Amino acid sequence: MKKHGVLALVLAGVMLLLCGCGGMTTDDAKDYVQSALDCGYKAEVKKYAEITETTEKEAKKEYETNLDTIMKEAGFDDTGVSDELKADYRSMFEKMLKSANYKVKEAKETEDDEFTVTVEVCPFTAFSTVSDELDQWVTDTYSNVETIPSDEELNEAIMRKMYEIMSAKLADPTYGDKMEKEVHVKVNKDGAYYIPNDDLTAVDDALFPQNQL
Results as ranks from 00 to 15, higher is better:
residue 157 A to N: 00
residue 192 A to I: 14
residue 148 I to Q: 15
residue 24 M to F: 10
residue 127 F to N: 13
residue 162 M to L: 03
residue 112 D to P: 13
residue 139 T to P: 04
residue 37 L to I: 05
residue 12 A to L: 12
residue 51 I to Y: 13
residue 166 M to L: 05
residue 3 K to S: 15
residue 30 K to M: 01
residue 181 K to V: 08
residue 35 S to V: 02
residue 167 S to K: 05
residue 13 G to E: 14
residue 208 F to W: 11
residue 144 N to P: 00
residue 68 D to W: 04
residue 141 T to R: 01
residue 45 V to S: 01
residue 84 E to K: 06
residue 29 A to E: 03
residue 93 F to H: 08
residue 162 M to I: 01
residue 53 E to H: 08
residue 190 D to A: 07
residue 47 K to A: 12
residue 26 T to Y: 05
residue 153 E to Y: 06
residue 77 D to W: 05
residue 159 M to P: 06
residue 162 M to G: 06
residue 86 K to V: 08
residue 64 E to L: 07
residue 158 I to V: 07
residue 165 I to F: 02
residue 122 C to I: 06
residue 186 K to Y: 11
residue 112 D to K: 11
residue 69 T to N: 07
residue 176 G to L: 08
residue 123 P to G: 05
residue 89 Y to G: 04
residue 195 I to D: 13
residue 115 F to L: 00
residue 12 A to S: 14
residue 105 K to Q: 09
residue 203 V to K: 00
residue 87 A to E: 08
residue 93 F to A: 10
residue 33 V to I: 08
residue 131 S to N: 13
residue 139 T to Y: 15
residue 30 K to F: 01
residue 126 A to C: 09
residue 39 C to A: 15
residue 49 A to E: 10
residue 108 K to H: 15
residue 35 S to Y: 02
residue 109 E to D: 12
residue 14 V to E: 09
residue 10 V to C: 12
